[in-house]
Computed example of a mutant assay.
Amino acid sequence: MRAALLILPLALLASGCVARTAANIVTLPVKAVGAGVDAVTTSQEEADRNRGREIRKQEEREAKERKRAEKDARKRAHEQGQPY
């Protein structure tokens, strides 16, 4: 009698686990394909964000190069005794 009282709740719990596991197995391929598509494709928002980042980095490189050129010009002018 006691064994039956213990087995019944365990059987009910196990059947719930089986149903959840079966649902996970069935939905796994759909989730995997969706994740693969997301990884391969780029949304317009991501493309815009990446392009903006690329433009900012290019502007930073140009600003550094411009500062370096101005510094070199000042240095050359100073060495030649000319005002900048």
Rank of each mutant, 00 (worst) to 15 (best):
R76K: 15
E62W: 05
S43H: 01
K71S: 10
L28D: 13
I7Q: 13
E62D: 14
L13W: 05
R76Y: 05
R61V: 09
T27W: 10
A63E: 06
K64G: 00
T41S: 03
R76I: 04
A77R: 11
A4V: 04
L8M: 08
T27S: 15
N24F: 12
Q58A: 14
E45L: 13
R74N: 07
E46M: 04
T27H: 12
L6S: 03
C17W: 07
L8E: 15
G16W: 04
A14I: 03
I25L: 13
E62I: 01
A32C: 03
A23G: 13
D38W: 06
L6C: 06
A11S: 10
L12S: 07
R2E: 14
E79Q: 14
A77F: 11
L5W: 05
Q44D: 09
A4C: 08
A11F: 08
S15K: 04
Q80L: 15
A47K: 01
R66H: 02
P9L: 09
R20S: 10
K64T: 05
V26I: 15
R49L: 04
A39T: 05
P29S: 12
R20I: 12
R74C: 00
K67Q: 13
G52D: 07
A14G: 04
A69Q: 15
R53Y: 01
A73L: 13
R76S: 06
E54Y: 07
Q82R: 15
E59N: 05
K71R: 14
E70T: 04
H78N: 09
A3C: 00
G36W: 06
L5H: 03
L10Q: 08
Q82E: 14
A39E: 05
G16L: 10
K75W: 12
L28N: 12
G36R: 08
R66P: 01
A47Y: 00
E59D: 01
L13Y: 05
E79C: 00
G34H: 06
E45Y: 05
P9N: 06
D48N: 02
Y84K: 02
V33H: 02
A19Q: 12
L6I: 01
K75V: 04
A73I: 08
E70F: 12
L13A: 11
L5V: 02
A73D: 14
A23L: 12
Q58T: 03
R68W: 13
A32G: 04
E60T: 03
A63T: 10
A22M: 10
